[in-house]
Nucleic acid binder design. Sequence first.
DNA 1: ACGTGTGAAAGTTTTCACAGCG
DNA 2: CGCTGTGAAAACTTTCACACGT
Lengths: 251, 251
Amino acid sequence: MATGRTHRPATRSRGIPEATVARLPLYLRALTALSERSVPTVSSEELAAAAGVNSAKLRKDFSYLGSYGTRGVGYDVEYLVYQISRELGLTQDWPVVIVGIGNLGAALANYGGFASRGFRVAALIDADPAMTGRQVAGIAVQHSDDLEKIISDNGVSIGVITTPPGVAQQVCDRLVAAGVTSILNFAPTVLSVPDGVDVRKVDLSIELQILAFHEQRKAGEEHEGTAAPAAPHQEADEQGPDGDVPAVMPA
Amino acid sequence: MATGRTHRPATRSRGIPEATVARLPLYLRALTALSERSVPTVSSEELAAAAGVNSAKLRKDFSYLGSYGTRGVGYDVEYLVYQISRELGLTQDWPVVIVGIGNLGAALANYGGFASRGFRVAALIDADPAMTGRQVAGIAVQHSDDLEKIISDNGVSIGVITTPPGVAQQVCDRLVAAGVTSILNFAPTVLSVPDGVDVRKVDLSIELQILAFHEQRKAGEEHEGTAAPAAPHQEADEQGPDGDVPAVMPA
DNA sequence: ACGTGTGAAAGTTTTCACAGCG
DNA sequence: CGCTGTGAAAACTTTCACACGT
């Protein structure tokens, strides 16, 4: 999964498990909400409930960051918000470009969760000349001919691809050539990128297919030895493990 | 993570690991592409490359479904497409409702990946009277007052929430009360649901935060004992474990 | 007292490596 | 001979349960 070479056997310290990293944004969101309500401290139990995980997992996660809690008391909300933000790299400004301004690109451009987390939409790019100059979320759409210049002028290192699948790879190649080293891909395609570039993908239909799988199981459920009582058991589990899979591969 | 009780220690046969389930849609997509190019068979190596995973993992995944390959040859594309579709429950029709028709809801309604996988957008629902009757992706938006009736008339068991976070829980409660048992949540909120209901969430900003974490590591990388050679090592790794979490946005 | 921090156990997922079938 | 299918090992994650600091 993660960083290829960076495969040092967890020299302790610098080794925060990927599973933990993936949950930090969750904790951060819950903490931010508490902070807005001026709650000064939280116990692992309370915070875990707010984030939708169990408390042992949360404490273990935090233990990788350091000892930021107080025994017998809990965690200082503001302090934790800061520590997690710093760990995630959100205390700095991340200019981001979104390529492909259809409904999804527009939805992302308007999404408040970005700005509030250190992400700044530096530019919106689309290949359709008819889109050029149009305002979306208060930002003028620029033509893809200028992609390279936009990336370098703004020092962009993170790109979001919301184009149709057919052009995703070429957009990706141009982004990478222009200096982007992290890509969030919404196009249903496996992107190839050189070493040193991270790709994460979000696939709307995959999530739905996973739900269908479980939904199907519920239908055929009248079995399992002793007849089950009332409710059609099952729990409202946490999200499956992975949640997705890879992206990418060698150039 | 997944279905609570279904916790039988893998009585063999019916126990497909969650991690495997999460990858089946990936294989299905790659296989569908091959099918369209009329490729008759694939080796685990080729298919794995197309799906962005490694071949050992793919073979292990398929082994949970049964022995669908031919040694020395590979897998029959059409046959595998069918087997995986069936396993995922995509050979049946899944009517879906989308609640909250903002940019994101509209993007989902227009997304081709649904229709082609057995999902049918049965209705678009929004609380804004101004939206009622408007056509989105060829479907007339209906008012949320009629939510319950829409669900039961169409036999909907899967709901997609793309509302602002503030109303997500109440929308969720109404969906569940009306009979929905699987929910895909794009609102950045932790939803509470009774046992028997599955929730999966997709969070756009969380993915970006995970990228920022890795991006930050790349910056401070000139160390590690012996001076690293040329390239700023790192790999183009597969997606981290989890994968995601919530998101959302406008109404 | 109370709740954090953490070793150790349990469970899950990935990778290895090769036996065996076509 | 090539490639699948799979036990067994390794790696990773989660859960337990309790010692320890405040």
